[in-house]
Amino acid sequence: MKAGGQTWAAGLFADSEIAERFSDDALFASFSRFEQALIRGLAKAGLVADEDATHLVKQIADFEPDGPAIAAAAVRDGVPVPEYVRQLRAHVSGPAKTMLHHGATSQDLMDTAAIETLAAINGILAKRLEILLGLLAALSARDGGNKLEAITRMQPAIPFHAADRIAAWRHPLQSLYDRLPALSDQTRLLQFGGAVGDLQALGGNAHIVAETIASELGLRWPGHSWHSARSPVLAHANWMSELTGTLGKIGQDVALMALRGNQDIQISGGGSSSAMPHKQNPVTAERLVTLARFNATLVSGIHHAQLHELERSGAAWMLEWMILPQICETAGTGLTAASALIGSIQEMGRPA
Rank of each mutant, 00 (worst) to 15 (best):
Q306E: 15
Q6F: 13
D62M: 11
T297W: 11
G248R: 02
D178C: 08
R128A: 12
K127W: 00
E216R: 11
S274V: 06
G251P: 08
Q346C: 09
L109M: 09
S225D: 07
W239A: 15
T7Y: 09
L234F: 01
G194C: 04
L100H: 05
A305N: 09
E149P: 03
G251T: 03
T7P: 00
R142A: 10
F63T: 07
E329S: 11
A61C: 01
Q174R: 13
F160D: 14
I131D: 14
A206H: 05
R40G: 10
H278L: 10
A69Q: 12
L42Y: 05
D50G: 15
L243Y: 01
P156H: 04
R230T: 05
H102A: 13
S241L: 04
R170H: 09
I208E: 13
G245I: 06
R40L: 13
P82M: 04
A37F: 06
G5E: 12
F160A: 12
D15L: 08
N205Y: 12
H161L: 12
P282Q: 07
W317H: 07
I124H: 12
A45F: 05
L243S: 02
R153W: 03
G271K: 11
M257K: 03
S23V: 12
Q191H: 07
T187S: 10
L136W: 03
G248Y: 01
I250N: 06
H236N: 14
G46R: 09
Y177G: 11
A157L: 09
M1G: 13
G301M: 13
G203N: 08
R260Y: 04
H236K: 08
E51P: 07
E20F: 14
G5N: 14
H278F: 11
